[in-house]
């Protein structure tokens, strides 16, 4: 991991949705760096703001009802939020690419694989069609599509779910972007297929020097498998950031600890699982003060009144909890 300037800096990002005259603060001030060459994970449940954060980076939030209201997203010395539409379009797919959760619906059903996979290079690199096809064959082979050249004329429905996710990855990587944002890339897949895709992403990451992955998932095990560092989100805010060793070895936030404790493990067989009490509030109902205070077992009056700041307790290990020191 290089220690020079981060590849991407997200500063105080706020994204809101206006739903039936109410405002849902999906992301309420998120800041983090994505370093060159690293795999950074964002883990959270529904309503945590993890997906909205990732979509905000590429400005893919549907507007209306969504709106990025505040913040900066710095990439290559420019604030992506200040770029014109046309400049932003140049970034998408070329510098920062994205893959999504649902491989079944994320490909256009009426276009051939060839048309979809070559589209980014035709758009961004102005390659001629023949070269674009060569590049597509190369990248489809690299993601493990057998007999790639013959399958170019096939349509998405002729591929299985795992194969479609490989096509998505090929399409995202064809312009050799610096950053790949992967939003729940394996959630819709079977376990043995998930293992294939994770292995592929690791292999490709090893080959793509200096490029980074931002991996969004709800599954801590996938984080442990794939990431260098991890961000834990809850209620639209970062609750904890650290290396995976920090986070799994020395979790500081009560929410992180709750999540880790609630995973069924071999040694807990026959015992009760730890369960975080209560339910994830609806996006309109998160408490003021600490977002987690309505479910936290160590809640104090201060937590309900005063929103905690994200504090650095050890180098690179930050947590948003008033009482993190006492609890650990």
């Amino acid at each position: 991991m290089t220690q020079n300037k981060p590849l991407l800096e997200v500063r105080n990002l706020h994204t809101e949705f206006h739903v039936e005259k109410r405002i849902a603060k999906a992301v309420g001030g998120v800041s983090f760096d994505l370093n060159a060459g690293e795999v950074l994970g964002i883990v959270g449940e529904s309503g945590s703001g993890k997906s909205v954060t990732s979509l905000s980076i590429l400005r893919l939030i549907p507007d209306p009802p969504g709106k990025i209201t505040e913040g900066e997203i710095l990439y290559g010395g420019r604030d992506l939020l200040k770029l014109s539409y046309e400049q932003m379009r140049e970034i998408r797919g070329r510098e920062i690419a994205m893959i999504f959760q649902e491989p079944m619906t994320s490909l256009n059903p009426v276009f051939t694989i060839e048309k979809q996979v070559t589209e980014p290079v035709l758009l961004h690199e102005k390659l001629n069609r023949k070269d674009a096809i060569e590049r597509a064959v190369e990248v489809l082979s690299a993601v493990g599509i057998p007999d790639a050249r013959r399958r170019l004329k096939d349509y998405p429905h002729q591929f299985s779910g795992g194969m479609r996710q490989r096509v998505m990855i090929a399409m995202a990587l064809i312009c050799r972007p610096a950053i790949l944002i992967a939003d729940e890339p394996t959630t819709a897949l079977d376990v043995t297929i998930q293992a294939q895709i994770l292995e592929l992403m690791q292999k490709l990451q090893g080959e793509r020097e200096g490029s980074s992955i931002l991996l969004i998932t709800h599954d801590l095990s996938v984080i442990a498998e794939m990431c260098d560092r991890v961000i834990v989100m809850y209620g639209g805010l970062i609750q904890e950031i650290g290396t995976i060793r920090d986070l799994f070895g020395n979790p500081l936030h009560p929410y992180t600890r709750g999540l880790l404790a609630s995973i069924p493990r071999e040694e807990n067989k026959g015992k009760k699982l730890y369960a975080i009490p209560g339910n994830v509030p609806s996006i309109f109902d998160f408490p003021s003060g600490c977002k987690f205070c309505s479910r936290c077992e160590h809640v104090q009056d201060r937590c309900r009144e005063e929103a905690p700041e994200l504090r650095e307790l050890a180098k690179g290990h930050l947590v948003r909890c008033h009482f993190a020191e006492e609890l650990s």
Binding site: I91, R92, F100, N108, E119, H124
Partner: peptide
């Protein structure tokens, strides 16, 4: 979803609408 994919690839919005 595939419309979001097209936008994420950097396809211009006219083309997203009129082609995809």
């Amino acid at each position: 979803d595939y419309i979001r994919t097209a936008f994420a690839k950097g396809v211009p919005s006219r083309r997203v609408i009129f082609s995809h």
